[in-house]
Simulated assay, not measured.
Amino acid sequence: MEQKHLLIVDGMALLFRSFFASAAMNQFIRLEDGTPSNGVQGFARHVMTAETLFQPTHLAICWDMGAHTFRNELFDGYKANRPAPPEEMLPQFDMAKEVSTLLGWTNFGVVGMEADDAIGSMVAKWKDEAKITVISGDRDLLQLLNPMTTIALTKKGYTEYNMYTEQLFVEEYGITPPQFAEVKAFMGDASDGYPGIKGIGPKTALQLIQTYGSIEGVLANIDALKPAQRTKILADTDMLHMSHRLATIHCEMDIALQLEDLRRKLYTTEHAQMLEQKGYRLIAKHARSLGVL
């Protein structure tokens, strides 16, 4: 019986990573009409390389669908301080989805939700049907680890990852993966714009959850804490709960797709021709170098 292996790609993470890796050297790899394509071409090459490394039977690319999500409704400051994407990147969001479709990859995203939520919902839906590998640069996804799911955090180039299994995570952090969102609730996340408990950093946040198991466990033992910690937490309990809601990946999205809809397709010379006609020659060249075209 076939062992199904679903590769879920955080499209936003790879697109941003690819864009900034080359934009820093002013290499925008423009198409004939002048449109920058560096992020798109890097993103596609990264995914193709991942296919050869992980040999999945199924593949999905998850995307944010706009900057405004349900988390902005919960908290005005959510991601409020993030700079707007550079002008050269703006056309590449749609271009990346177009290239994905051209190559037979399934794009998935829902307006009002983040790519993380799409990934989490896919993991929840198919964790009993397939081995799952998630590619991203976002450590928040570690809360999704389970016995059938591995998180591959981008490290260097297209081939190096920090591979996290549930067992490795428990050994390294001393908590279970779902408890990671509770750690984040205490320490906050400057990049996502929620403060957690001011004055409590990652080390203390982790120690609190290791010791008391949960936010409710900490609050139930508040008198056992150091006076300074007690004061900080009691002053910001509402924000603590809000930060937990913001940090928790929503895993209950309705996914109309079936697992078989995500089955990988073989590449053909037609794919190469379409890529080259549209100006994506680096992707076609990379595919040939991998031996998939």
Results as ranks from 00 to 15, higher is better:
T176H: 10
E171Q: 13
Y164W: 15
Y158A: 09
G157Q: 03
E160I: 00
A185W: 04
T165Q: 10
N162R: 13
K156F: 03
E171H: 09
A185G: 05
M163N: 11
E182V: 00
A185P: 04
A190F: 12
Q179R: 06
V170L: 04
P177C: 07
L168A: 15
E171M: 06
V183W: 06
V170A: 05
A181K: 09
G174C: 08
I175H: 03
V183T: 06
A190R: 15
Y158G: 02
I175Y: 01
I175V: 08
E182D: 04
A185N: 04
M187D: 06
N162Y: 10
Y164K: 04
F186H: 06
G188W: 03
F180E: 01
T165P: 07
A185M: 07
F186A: 09
Y161S: 11
E160A: 09
K156P: 02
A181F: 08
K156R: 13
K184C: 02
Y158L: 09
I175K: 05
P178W: 09
E166C: 12
T176Q: 09
F169M: 15
K156Y: 01
F180S: 03
E166M: 15
G174A: 06
G188I: 11
E160R: 05
D189E: 07
G174R: 09
F180Y: 15
M163P: 11
T165M: 08
F169P: 15
M187E: 15
A181R: 06
M163E: 13
G157F: 02
E171P: 06
K156S: 10
Y173A: 08
F186N: 03
F180H: 03
F169V: 15
Q167D: 13
T176R: 11
E171V: 06
Y173K: 15
E182L: 00
Q167S: 10
M163T: 12
T165N: 11
D189N: 12
V170K: 15
A185S: 05
T165D: 08
N162I: 10
E172S: 07
Y161Q: 12
Y173P: 00
A190L: 14
L168V: 10
L168Y: 10
Y158D: 08
E160C: 02
Y164N: 11
A190Q: 13
Q167L: 07
T176M: 02
T165R: 10
L168W: 11
M187R: 13
F180P: 01
K184F: 00
P177H: 03
G188Y: 06
P178L: 01
Y164H: 13
L168D: 14
G174E: 08
M187W: 03
K184A: 05
V170T: 13
G174W: 09
G157I: 03
E182F: 01
A181G: 07
K184Q: 13
A190H: 09
D189V: 11
G157A: 07
Y173V: 02
F180K: 04
Y161N: 06
E160L: 03
L168Q: 14
F169T: 12
F169N: 14
G188D: 08
Y161F: 14
G157W: 01
E172Q: 11
Y161I: 08
T165S: 12
M187L: 12
G157K: 00
P178K: 07
Q179A: 10
F180N: 03
A181E: 09
Y164S: 14
L168I: 15
G174P: 06
E182A: 05
G157N: 03
Q167G: 01
M163Y: 10
G157H: 00
M187G: 10
E171F: 06
F186M: 04
E171T: 07
D189C: 08
N162P: 02
